[in-house]
């Protein structure tokens, strides 16, 4: 019997010849972002001679790492249909915690653990309020933009904490096998997230919750637990990037990370993850972060004024989102 399976009504009207191509993109959303990345790379290399030099590319990767690490946690939260605006503040608290501990005489490795714990605590607060108390994520994490930031400012009295031990510099300035540590940390975080999201049950649940929370709950999955986990992990990645940044700057800056939440969200969305959750890919986020980084770097090389850069960046984000989602809307 013919029509029962795939009712034509469900199809995409007016697609015509482009249908196969469009289906390919829909099945492989990552390609959208990759094409964007390549186009951007080509454009930048034409506009600026230095862009493609190995030194500059390594520079881009290192600059990208801080935002990219935060964006991993952000991806996980957004996949569940949530949002985490507190990441910049949590990162700053992580920085000052690590720096403060070291200034108080703690060895770097203990300071790092304390910073990570601080990130987990902030993530847990978000997670409890969103998953268990059922408050809207945008409000909870908006409030949590203030609390960690305020705590960091209180603790440091508003001044950066500098004079950190030389051995701490490894995490932001060191190299392993000729590759800079921030890049390695970034790749490791992405690798772990990739395996978790794609090869473990928890990944299926996180995607599923964003796709249809109620269906997942009625399938006998403890939805709240996984929602909580998403915010917990977001706090953790914010703290990790805080450690990298404080090591890069060799100081703990309570004012760092303002606006980082927006950069992270931009990376996630540029990477093809649906802002309403359920669809997307962690590697897309890496591509998205790289796009943002290349854009920043290229515009700097071309000596475009930072103010104009902001305008351009915003316009390009809108354009990219339109290209990836605007066209294949289902209605």
């Amino acid at each position: 019997m013919p029509p029962a399976d795939t009712s034509p009504e469900a199809g995409n009207p007016g697609a015509g010849r482009l249908q196969p191509l469009r289906n390919f993109f829909r099945r492989n959303p990552l390609t959208y972002s990759l094409v964007g990345l390549v186009l951007l790379g080509v454009a930048m290399s034409f506009l600026s001679g230095e862009f493609l030099s190995p030194a500059n590319l390594s520079n881009v990767l290192r600059q990208v790492s801080v935002n990219a690490i935060i964006a991993v946690g952000m991806t996980i939260v957004i996949l569940t249909g949530g949002i985490d605006l507190s990441v910049g503040a949590v990162m700053a608290l992580g920085m000052t915690t690590a720096a403060g501990a070291m200034l108080a005489g703690a060895p770097p490795f203990l300071a790092i653990i304390l910073a990570l714990l601080m990130g987990l605590v902030c993530g847990a607060v978000n997670g409890v309020l969103v998953a268990y108390v059922r408050l809207p994520a945008i409000i909870v994490t908006l409030a949590m933009m203030e609390i960690p930031r305020g705590a960091a400012l209180l603790y440091t009295k508003g001044y950066p904490l500098s004079g950190l031990p030389e051995s701490f510099a490894f995490w932001g300035r060191g190299q392993v096998f000729g590759i800079e540590t921030p890049i390695l940390i970034m790749l490791a975080v992405f690798g772990i997230a990739y395996v978790m999201l794609n090869h473990f049950p928890v990944g299926r649940y996180l995607y599923g919750i964003g796709g249809n929370e109620e269906a997942v709950r009625l399938s006998g999955i403890r939805v709240r637990r996984y929602q909580f986990l998403a915010y917990l992990l977001s706090g953790l990645t914010a703290a990790i990037s805080g450690i990298v940044l404080s090591s890069r700057l060799m100081s703990g800056q309570p004012n760092a990370g303002g606006g980082f939440e927006l950069d992270a969200i931009a990376a996630v969305v540029l990477g093809g993850t649906s802002i309403t959750g359920g669809r997307g890919h962690i590697l897309g986020t890496l591509v998205g972060a790289l796009m943002l980084g290349m854009l920043n770097n290229g515009l700097n090389l071309m000596e475009v004024s930072p103010y104009a850069q902001m305008v351009l960046k915003g316009a390009i984000i809108i354009l990219a989102i339109y290209a990836s989602t605007g066209k294949n809307s289902d209605r």
């Binding site: 299926r204 599923g208 249809n212 109620e214 269906a215 009625l218």
Partner: peptide, 12 residues
């Protein structure tokens, strides 16, 4: 709205 995760495949 409650039985299926629509973006997921049959198998998923």
């Amino acid at each position: 709205h409650q039985g299926l995760i629509l973006p997921f495949s049959v198998a998923e």
